[in-house]
């Protein structure tokens, strides 16, 4: 299945090419953790993972055509 990936803030450097917005293909039942592994984003790297706008974690399942956004954790306002 095809997944849209968008990397922002400190996570941009993990993009496989020059563009921080790209697509990746995964087998069914793949998780956000599999995506992180593909991009070589290790466990220590702080990140927020959003799948279709919902705060998710490594165990969250990817779905066909979903958008995964990963960026440095923030808070405040």
């Amino acid at each position: 299945m095809l997944v849209h990936v968008k990397l922002y803030s400190e996570l941009k450097r993990y993009a496989p090419g020059e563009d921080n917005v790209f697509m990746l293909e995964f087998p069914p039942e793949s998780t956000a953790g599999d995506l992180l592994q593909t991009l070589k984003i290790s466990e220590e790297v702080p990140r927020f993972i959003l799948i279709d706008g919902i705060l998710s974690d490594e165990k969250s399942l990817l779905t066909e055509g979903c958008t995964v956004v990963i960026f440095t954790p923030v808070c405040g306002g």
Binding site: K6, Y8, S9, E10, E44, P46, F48, L50, G53, L55, V69, F71, T72, P73, V74, C75, G76, G77
Partner: peptide, 23 residues
Amino acid sequence: KVTPIGLRINGTAGVVTATQNFG
């Protein structure tokens, strides 16, 4: 040391990335 503080790096302005992507 393990988790660099987002607030120190980009200030509260870093929240734009979150609110934009949550819609």
